[in-house]
């Protein structure tokens, strides 16, 4: 199994993500610099990590979404390769048009950095198959721009299609309908503000993020078999 973690100038969760992919998924994981315009064909999984790409200039994720590598990520997503964007990665996926909506400044203006409770809304996707629907899990957030916005019609559509993967189970950032993570229409792209890679073993204060990567691994193995 081969995975790539995309690195932008200002990414800062890239190594944590690579550890999660190597340790939990056992994936042969490479770090790919954003100036690359191609990704290797045999890639099974792509992660866009958290951080502050380009110093959040213009809008969070705006510059990174226009990096050369993103054209390759968009093409891979179109072929069905699972793509996970966490935090700044989620912002980049919306700016790149792979996911609907936008992540705006937190309603309370402040940067929020703490563990939050999430409710698993969809337990059918490749990312969430190791969770139970309606299960409550704890994963940390660390962001300034996590306030998910989309127009009402878009919100109704993604809700109706079961594309809300995670919802906040407590007030965090003012997100529309408490949305913490959403899937694309094909279900192979997930963007989420909370950091599952920071919760993969007890030493980190919890391991609720571990099952996300286990689910992906099992889904990929089933696909290959």
């Amino acid at each position: 199994m081969r995975a790539a973690v995309i690195q932008f100038p200002g990414s800062n969760c890239d190594r944590d993500m690579a550890v999660a992919l190597r340790d939990v998924m056992g994936a042969d994981t490479s770090l790919v610099w954003h100036r690359e315009s191609e990704l290797s064909d045999g890639l099974d999984f792509i992660a866009i990590p958290g951080g502050f790409s380009y110093g959040d200039y213009l809008r969070s994720g705006a510059m990174a979404a226009r990096s050369p590598v993103m054209q390759a990520v968009i093409a891979a997503a179109g072929r069905g390769v699972p793509v996970l964007g966490v935090c700044n990665g989620f912002q980049i996926l919306t700016e790149a048009g792979l996911l609907p909506g936008a992540l705006m400044r937190n309603a309370g203006i402040r940067f929020v950095c703490r563990k939050v409770r999430l409710k698993v809304e969809n337990s059918q996707s490749i990312f969430t198959s190791h969770y139970d629907a309606d299960e409550e899990i704890t994963i940390p957030v660390a962001h300034h721009d996590g306030n998910f916005f989309a127009d009402e019609a878009t919100l109704d559509r993604i809700e109706g299609e079961g594309r809300v993967a995670f919802r906040y189970a407590e007030p965090v950032n003012g997100s529309a309908r408490d949305i913490a993570g959403i899937l694309n229409d094909a279900g192979n792209v997930l963007g989420m503000m909370p950091h599952p890679e920071r919760m993969i073993e007890a030493m980190q204060g919890g391991s609720d993020g571990r099952r996300l990567f286990q689910g992906v691994m099992e889904g990929l193995i089933r696909e290959i078999a």
């Binding site: 213009l58 226009r66 700016e95 609907p100 936008a102 705006m104 916005f149 989309a150």
Partner: peptide, 9 residues
């Protein structure tokens, strides 16, 4: 349209 504004918001 392509960069300076995010047409969603």
């Amino acid at each position: 349209r392509k960069l300076l504004a995010n047409m969603v918001i």
